[in-house]
Nucleic acid binder design. Sequence first.
DNA 1: TATGAATGAGCCTTCATTCAT
DNA 2: GATGAATGAAGGCTCATTCAT
Lengths: 195, 195, 195, 195
Amino acid sequence: MRESDKHQQIIEAAVRVFARNGYYNSRVSDIAREAGVASGTIYLYFKTKDDILVTLFREKMAAWVAHVRERIAVEPDPVAKVRRLVALHFDTLERDPALAEVVQVELRQGHKFFRGASAHEVSAYFELIGSVLEAGQAAGVFRGDVPVNVATKVLFGAMDQMATSWVLGKRKYRLTDAADAVATVFLRGVTVDGA
Amino acid sequence: MRESDKHQQIIEAAVRVFARNGYYNSRVSDIAREAGVASGTIYLYFKTKDDILVTLFREKMAAWVAHVRERIAVEPDPVAKVRRLVALHFDTLERDPALAEVVQVELRQGHKFFRGASAHEVSAYFELIGSVLEAGQAAGVFRGDVPVNVATKVLFGAMDQMATSWVLGKRKYRLTDAADAVATVFLRGVTVDGA
Amino acid sequence: MRESDKHQQIIEAAVRVFARNGYYNSRVSDIAREAGVASGTIYLYFKTKDDILVTLFREKMAAWVAHVRERIAVEPDPVAKVRRLVALHFDTLERDPALAEVVQVELRQGHKFFRGASAHEVSAYFELIGSVLEAGQAAGVFRGDVPVNVATKVLFGAMDQMATSWVLGKRKYRLTDAADAVATVFLRGVTVDGA
Amino acid sequence: MRESDKHQQIIEAAVRVFARNGYYNSRVSDIAREAGVASGTIYLYFKTKDDILVTLFREKMAAWVAHVRERIAVEPDPVAKVRRLVALHFDTLERDPALAEVVQVELRQGHKFFRGASAHEVSAYFELIGSVLEAGQAAGVFRGDVPVNVATKVLFGAMDQMATSWVLGKRKYRLTDAADAVATVFLRGVTVDGA
DNA sequence: TATGAATGAGCCTTCATTCAT
DNA sequence: GATGAATGAAGGCTCATTCAT
């Protein structure tokens, strides 16, 4: 429990520090200070500075996907699932501005994150979205002529860009207010006419 | 003209080097070697390492926007303009893999690029897309109930994610093959029923 | 007695660890692990890391000198004493490879060991050798024209180099096999002709 | 020529700094200051701190062996060669106190020097000594019953210990004054009776 | 203009030592 | 006494930038 505490304490501190300065412009000592520990302590819980970022991303993404999966499950049909997914995506970011900053801006950088270690967690989210769309196609609600992997990227890309613009624009409006519009455009785009 | 030569030579070298190693893992001396000049020479044309990236992005984006604007203009109607825009977006990236890598992966990083100096060039592209959508709404082809700035981000986000996935997946397929599907989903999403 | 146990336990662990990695490349925590105690425990028995090395050297040297002195005493004459001394020197090292490694390689380093704290124990060995040679001169067996302190260093240096080469050569042969040859060369060198 | 200058400048500075503080207690910045260059400059000429020590040792040893080999060659017979070798050995150290300190004290430390990279230069010296002794045996001047490799180590060990004691004793006397005594003891030890 | 050797500030990481339990 | 998590000073090395040529 002690260990878990410090580990989490450092992760949360890192989120705030990376959100403020970016990964490459943050010093390990900044994270230590923010976490209220000595810099050497960081190395009792993480192998390197990179390890902090990778672990941060993995844990946050895993929690994210688990959370979304759970909430989606209770929705009755694919259309409702998509609307709920968009709403949750935006809501999650809106609830944690520092995490939003890190996820939308810092984690996009460099070879080492999207590729490599964190790839698995990202694709879990893509697979979750994909499974909803597939179910919709199977149920005859979504058109069969749009490849699922394309539709998945279109939806994720739309949400992601909404989020990025919102973060870069200093979060001056409520992101969730746009959830319906995004879901609607996407659903019109993939739904069978008259369905 | 000599100046212009070296300037361009350095920019192109930087694109290749950043594509290979990422911005933060590239040395100024790497760019110099790739450009075939001494590292001191870099500083005759650029103020700092950052300046190379910012300038690179500005120039590439300006050319991109000008190119797209020009080609879009000749299309007869908003729907055709959107289809053309998606095709051009993908085509441009496909023609220059190193640039694609830099634009899709490296430029996403950090505070300093999306915000700050390069913001103007990015928003020019958003405005170009927005103007097409606005014209479509004015012509009664696109629904008026979807805010243009939302639809703009949805379209850009969709294209961008297609591109990013393609780059991260090592460009194993033809990106342009997906242009129609992306355009179709988007257009169905925003077009007035029966139009 | 408990204290004495842990003390000795740590010293012996240190010998093995230093033999393996060298003094500067050994962590206090390595010694602790090897000794089966927590690293904090080390500091209940030794003031600093240096103190471990110095103490180790002192105790080993003191035991060495006492052991040699005792065995030498029973030999009837200076020549026999020298032969016995060389044999014992080699035998002691051969019986404890880890100690041999530490004594021949690690303890040679740096200002702090030969000079300073351990100097006294080293000179006790030199004095023991010197006393044998002096007795030989007094008995008219060894030549008076070679200064005792020179002959002492010659003998010690010869034995020491034999030992060092043997250690550096990974102890592939029996060191004691060379004892007679070394003793013989030295004795011929210092013995009065016809004696 | 410039390069060669800086390289040598740094080596000589390192000799002085290592002689003063020992290798592990010397900072790279100390060497830089002593050499009158910036610390980054060190890394233009040497890969790591270790590389400085290894290079230093190699170059000094190579010069040493070449020097001794040359001077030995002109001596008419094995006995004269041995006397000259001892004199040169002591003379070389006496002429360069900082180098003597480094060679006798600092270079003995740790696994990485005697073994590994510098081993070749050391064995060149042993082979030089061995060749003189072999020639003496072949000429019937030195006894055949003492193995050359043992006699080599005895002679080297004797000289080395004389040198070490002299260095550790702060060089309060003239080392070369002891050259004859050492050579004499050794020569008596290995020479055929009556020769 | 062009060069590239030199600079030196900056930072990640290690590890001897401490101290609350 | 014993523990081992926590500390934080210290230092090797990198690399953007400068400047004498």
